[in-house]
Amino acid sequence: MPALWTPSEKLLLASTSATRLGLLVSAGLFVETQNAGIDERAIEEAAAHEALDPLSLAGRLAAEKALAVSRRHPDRVVLGADQVLDCDGEVFHKPADRAAAHAQLKRLAGRQHNLHSAGALAIGGQVVERFSGTARLTLRPLTDEAIDLYLDLAGPDVLKSVGVYQLEGFGIHLFEAVEGDHSTILGLPLLPLLAALRRLGCLAL
């Protein structure tokens, strides 16, 4: 069988995200994962002093993840990725519990928000490629009862998502409009990533 991935070592994903891993595997890439182990909140606090916009913040976090793992494995191609949700300039984070998830969905209901997904590729402790994508999503107006029903149906996995929804599942019922690439919504802009890998000579196709 012909090989798509040209390096001798697998792509190293600086994340344990099952969703991002699934996107990469579905594209035929050979991937290993490793937790970056960075303090994301500390990076966000530092970025706040630089007045970074949400898209730039996503790029900073993706790059820091890639660099952290690349320093440990300098001979590997390392991919870092991150996603930031902003609504009218306010950055949202993954909810800590169901009550926080409910409150977050209530604040987003009936409003448009942006999902900024960014990635960085690092080799030898240096970022060699950066890419990003933005999707715009509008939640329909939701009652408290509707939010509670959704949280019951979706289960605890929604706490793993910054938007408290999973479009590939019950989350699709929350939306009035979705504008953007599906992989960007899932947290990894796949087409820009593949273009970057081709530029690095990592793909035969």
Rank of each mutant, 00 (worst) to 15 (best):
E50V: 07
E44K: 12
E45T: 08
K106E: 11
R136N: 04
R136W: 12
P156Q: 03
G89Q: 07
A46P: 12
L151K: 01
P95Y: 00
V69M: 14
L108H: 07
L108W: 12
E129Q: 15
D144T: 04
I43S: 11
E40S: 14
L153A: 07
K106A: 08
S56D: 13
F131Y: 11
G80N: 05
E50D: 08
D75T: 09
V69S: 08
D75E: 14
P156A: 08
A42G: 13
D144I: 09
L79S: 00
G110K: 01
H93L: 08
E145A: 15
L55K: 10
I43E: 12
D86A: 12
L52W: 14
Q126C: 13
R72F: 00
S117R: 01
R72T: 02
Y150K: 03
G133A: 14
A48S: 14
G155H: 15
L159D: 04
V69H: 09
D148A: 14
G110D: 10
G124R: 10
A146M: 12
Q112E: 14
A118P: 11
V128L: 01
A99K: 14
E129I: 00
C87N: 14
R76E: 03
T143F: 08
S132C: 13
D88R: 15
L61M: 06
E44V: 08
A99I: 12
A68G: 02
P95M: 12
A42R: 10
L137M: 04
A120V: 14
V77C: 10
L52G: 04
S70M: 09
L121M: 01
G125M: 12
A135K: 05
D86H: 15
E129M: 07
P95S: 09
D88F: 02
P74K: 04
E50G: 02
A146C: 04
Y150G: 00
V91R: 05
A66S: 12
E50W: 06
Q83K: 03
A120W: 13
I123C: 13
D148M: 03
A58I: 01
G119N: 03
A42F: 10
Q112T: 09
L151F: 09
D82G: 12
A81N: 06
S70C: 07
G37C: 01
A51D: 01
L115E: 01
E45H: 04
L61W: 06
V91C: 04
K94A: 09
E90V: 15
R136T: 05
R130H: 15
G124D: 07
R111W: 11
L142I: 01
G155C: 02
A120L: 11
E50H: 07
G80W: 12
L149R: 11
S56I: 04
L105C: 08
A101W: 15
L153S: 07
Q126S: 02
R140H: 10
L153E: 04
D152N: 10
L159H: 12
L57M: 13
L57K: 06
D86S: 15
A81T: 08
R71F: 05
L67V: 03
P95D: 12
K65G: 05
